[in-house]
Write a protein that binds this DNA or RNA. Structure first.
Length: 459
RNA sequence: GGCGGCGUGGCCGAGUGGUUCAGGCAGGGGCCUGCAAAGCCUCGUACGGCGGUUCGAUUCCGCCCGCCGCCUCCA
């Protein structure tokens, strides 16, 4: 059974589902006002891995992740570029999906957009107002957090210490510096939506409550996001739900962030790398493997060095797949995993994943299974080696790691060069054979000899 | 001020009260190979510092040092 760290309790606990066999999860998505960066990539990969693993466990996963398409940042950007907010949001949302697809991140089951839910938000704010949990000031509506039972649950701080540590300037309009905006009255030049209190736009914290409850219903299983969303975003989402007496997330899962030389990568520090930039220089799988090889709650350094390291490790995976497919005849290729070796690694893999998503441990099992497979191949134990291959594929699929098994289209010229080289080798004309190998390499092929002659794959 | 995290061998990065061992990358040696590549075998003998608990601590406790984060928008 899967155990996960829960931010609300601060402990690792068994995932208890609302309904047997079904997992409902909501993961806070991006505000589309710029190119996605490595931090976005990390949370998206982390929760894609969780989602895939839960699916692998036989659960039916309903995965909701939103797009925030109205926000102060979008308005600023639109002003700066002389464009409309819609233009900015549409453009960057497209860039978002391009990067997600390149990283093989599965599309969510539902992708709600904040702008499609403004009415629902107005409705919810009205309810908060009616029960006197919200109040109006000159610039908008605010939630009075003192009305919220257990405010500070996720921050692990009580209201008093949150208040004393507040770095925000005391806004004389607000009853407490911790109170947050539900509805912001429009200033000139800003996009507006109508509400009973006046034209304006919703605050950020309201959209996710409305959309998660609408699409997943009360008491959904997992609410996820990066650790910087814990406070105030998730705290405030929860606040709105509980003050209305509605059950919210059963389990809070948060991933650590990407760091640059030890410091958090963020837009404000301007030390970020965009996903399109990473994808233009590296195998997209390298980022996924990097994420897999550290624990999801730990910080990770994503640098050309660590990515290159992961690419080398991927080479080991790909080489194993190539070797298996080349050397194992159809007659040895069973359809189910049998034998102790493969089963044991698979079992260890699951145990690791169940233990708060110990992907480093799980990945170690995958690589050990590869080693075992090679040894079995050396011993011509093809059935067992094939089982290792099946297990490797199963583990890799469970976390979304693809294999490069196809050598790529081999053109006529390459075929001829390969034939000529094999001919030269059989005649022990090694000078010629080496020259032909160099030619293949210069055509972009990696060359490996095998019992049945020259083999190439794209390097 | 309040709350939290981290410090592991050349690098990345897990984990655990004790004879064996994460895993990956890089490096040394060996095997295989015409030579390579891929692969196999093998080597390096790590856990910030000081105390304490213990038969025994990298792992538990305390203190210290260093680094990072949250309490404001941020993935």
């Amino acid at each position: 059974m899967v155990k996960l760290h829960d931010t609300a309790t601060g402990s690792v606990k068994e995932l208890e589902l609302r309904r047997d066999g079904e997992v409902s999860m909501y993961v806070c998505g991006p505000t589309v006002y710029g190119f996605p960066h490595l931090g976005h990539g990390r949370f998206a990969l982390t929760f894609d891995i969780l989602r895939r693993y839960l699916t692998f466990c036989g659960l039916n996963v309903v995965y909701v992740s939103n797009i925030t398409d109205i926000d102060d940042k979008i308005i600023q950007r639109a002003h700066a570029e002389g464009k409309t907010c819609d233009e900015i949001a549409h453009f960057y949302e497209e860039k978002w999906w391009e990067s997600m697809d390149a990283l093989s991140i599965l599309r969510p089951t539902y992708t709600p957009h904040a702008l499609d839910y403004v009415e629902g938000m107005v409705d919810l704010i009205g309810k908060l107002f009616n029960i006197d949990a919200a109040y109006e000031t000159s610039d908008g509506l605010y939630l009075d957090v003192s009305k919220v039972e257990g405010y500070g649950l996720l921050a692990h701080q009580d209201l008093k210490s949150l208040r004393s540590g507040a770095r925000v300037e005391i806004d004389s309009n607000k009853r407490s510096p911790v109170d947050f905006a539900l509805w912001k009255f429009a200033k000139p030049g800003e996009p507006i939506w109508p509400s009973p209190w006046g034209n304006g736009r919703p605050g950020w914290h309201t959209e996710c409550v409305v959309m998660s409850l609408d699409l997943l219903g009360e008491g959904f299983d997992i609410h996820g996001g990066a650790q910087d969303l814990i406070f105030p975003h998730h705290e405030n989402e929860r606040a709105q739900a509980v003050v209305l007496g509605r059950k919210f997330a059963r389990h809070w899962v948060h991933n650590g962030w990407v760091t640059v030389e030890g410091e958090k990568m963020s837009k404000s520090l301007d030390n970020y790398t965009t996903l399109p930039e990473l994808l233009s220089h590296h195998d997209p799988r390298a980022f996924r493997l990097l994420v897999l090889r550290s624990h999801y709650r730990s910080p990770i350094e994503v640098t050309p060095e660590t990515l290159t390291d992961s690419e080398a490790a991927l080479g080991r995976l790909d080489a194993f797949v190539r070797r298996v497919l080349n050397e194992i005849q159809d007659s040895y290729r069973g359809s189910i995993i049998s034998g102790k070796d493969a089963s044991l690694h698979l079992e260890n893999f699951k145990a690791a994943m169940d233990n708060d998503l110990d992907t480093p441990g799980a990945t170690a099992q995958l690589f050990e299974c590869i080693s075992r497979g090679h040894i079995l191949l050396d011993q011509s134990n093809y059935e067992a080696a094939w089982s290792c291959y099946l297990a490797v594929c199963e583990m890799a699929d469970a976390v979304g790691l693809e294999r490069k098994s196809i050598p790529g289209r081999i053109d006529q010229k390459t075929m001829e060069t390969i034939a000529a080289r094999d001919q030269a080798r059989s005649q022990r004309d090694y000078a010629l054979a080496d020259k032909l190998r160099d030619e293949l390499v210069s055509m972009g092929w990696a060359v490996e000899d095998s019992p049945s002659g020259t083999r190439v794959h794209r390097s």
